[in-house]
Write a protein that binds this DNA or RNA. Sequence first.
DNA 1: GTCTATATTTTGATAGAC
DNA 2: GTCTATCAAAATATAGAC
Lengths: 208, 208
Amino acid sequence: MSRIPPSPRRPAGRPRRASAAATRPQAVALLAKTFRRDGYDGASLATLSQATGLGKSSLYHYFPGGKVEMAHAVLDFSVDAARRNVFSAVAAPGPPAERLRELLRRMELFFERGTSACILGRLSASVDRDQFREPLTRVFKAQTEAIARLLVEAGVPRPTARARAEDTVISLQGALVLSSGTGDPAPFQRMMARLRRDLLAPVKRTRR
Amino acid sequence: MSRIPPSPRRPAGRPRRASAAATRPQAVALLAKTFRRDGYDGASLATLSQATGLGKSSLYHYFPGGKVEMAHAVLDFSVDAARRNVFSAVAAPGPPAERLRELLRRMELFFERGTSACILGRLSASVDRDQFREPLTRVFKAQTEAIARLLVEAGVPRPTARARAEDTVISLQGALVLSSGTGDPAPFQRMMARLRRDLLAPVKRTRR
DNA sequence: GTCTATATTTTGATAGAC
DNA sequence: GTCTATCAAAATATAGAC
């Protein structure tokens, strides 16, 4: 009697093997993609192995600390990528208003117009988030300060700039939550449009 | 010879047994707390069993569909709790501006001033989020519409009200992400203060 | 460095006594 | 309804050949 082996549970739309990593940096990039999609708790070593095309032993060769070390490497990698590809617009030459427009444009591309999640949000939601608390705190703060700096340059008073900058980081994370949960990138896109409209709005006089 | 059994790995600060559920609704409330803290992927049956004081078999008696059914029950329960304890302020008697103030006050309490997470965000970040996509979409939309309704009543033009309402839902989720990831409730509290200040701000004339 | 194979623990889930 | 005992599968991780 031939038994039909039960097909392994593989979520639809997840490629068995995206490609194969030949170097550690390549592996980190593929791990990043997987952690962003599945979250830290949701990504298993089997998933990560498939995504990188590396056997588990190879993964442990590159990351002796296992999953936690992989996530830390991914976090470093992603933060660096965001700095180079997005936040570099802050210190670019040109008028502040144009740099802000460019920053927002790159942000939108970085998150694939709302179809990709953010590793910061995923790690923040993990049950082991204490493992990542320090870098997360540092990165959220750095992003806020970078945006605030640009707003100040563009003429926004410093306290307002600080508030709007934190609001931008918060809105980014929140919009990605909604777009991830609903499977609809529209909330992210509308949020980006709102930022473009409001970030440089003149400051209202305080009531007296 | 007496053997010393190895103590099971239990994350610090997680109570072995919060209390004991005698009824299904009580169980759901305790499950909700656990899913909010650990996320869907991060909460194991062992965790959920400890949190409710029920054995796994009892859990399966109440929730034959296992973890997914538990999460759906928790989602229903939490949405109902939010409706009764928070959003009921929208339809209360009194001037709209006061109702809005009350809505925000209750929101802040509901999330324990930023020390508690939201089940919507946690499920949105889960690897099995497709399981919850429809209710999540429905709930995010309902929340947005409720807030928009109140803003319109308070005199905000409908398109602006809609945008500000979605921005409120997004900011709520985003602030909870930051507060969860950094372990610091301050971002949530500052965000709430910003909402109080800005939600009823006069609409800027569009440039022409 | 990568593989196959395996060890060990934990997972989600069930059986069956009470 | 709840428990103890148990299952098969999947989890993280390691051993050792090549």
